[in-house]
Amino acid sequence: MKFRTATSSRTGVQAGMKLARLMEMSEGDFESRVRELEGDPVFRRLLDTRVIAVQPYDSAGFAARRFGGWGLRTSGDGLSSVLDGQGEMAKLLHKVGQERFEECFLRDEAMTDAERARLCKIPREEAAKLREMVNRLYIQAEFDGASSEAAPPKVYSAVAGIMVEDGRAALAFFNREIWKGRYRVDEHKRRQLLDAMSAAEAKRADRILRDLEFLDRRKTTLYRLLEVLIEAQARFFVSGDPDQREPLTQRAVSEKLDVLPSVFNRLISNKSIELPWGLETPLRTLFPSRKSLLLDRLHELIRETPSATDDELSKLLARMYAAKLSCRSIAQYRAELGLGTSRTRR
Rank of each mutant, 00 (worst) to 15 (best):
R10Y: 06
A199Q: 15
M197I: 06
A60H: 06
A63I: 07
T7F: 11
L298M: 12
E304N: 08
A114W: 02
E280S: 10
S314A: 14
D48Y: 02
P153G: 08
K91W: 04
L72R: 04
A114T: 12
F173Q: 02
A335V: 08
V34E: 08
G16S: 15
I330H: 09
A322Y: 09
R343K: 14
S262T: 12
L93H: 09
G338I: 02
E274H: 06
L295T: 07
K2W: 03
S254P: 00
F3R: 11
R66A: 06
S254N: 10
G85A: 12
R207Q: 14
T112H: 05
F214R: 14
T221L: 06
M111L: 14
T11L: 07
S26C: 01
P153V: 07
E102A: 12
C120R: 00
E126R: 06
F237C: 08
A141W: 00
P56I: 06
R10F: 06
A335T: 14
S26Y: 03
K271V: 08
R303W: 01
A146H: 11
E246F: 04
F174V: 00
P261Q: 08
K18H: 11
M133Y: 12
T344P: 00
A318P: 03
R290P: 08
T305D: 13
G68C: 08
R4H: 10
L194F: 07
L325D: 01
G39F: 05
S147H: 11
D310K: 05
A170M: 04
R251T: 13
A323M: 01
L275D: 06
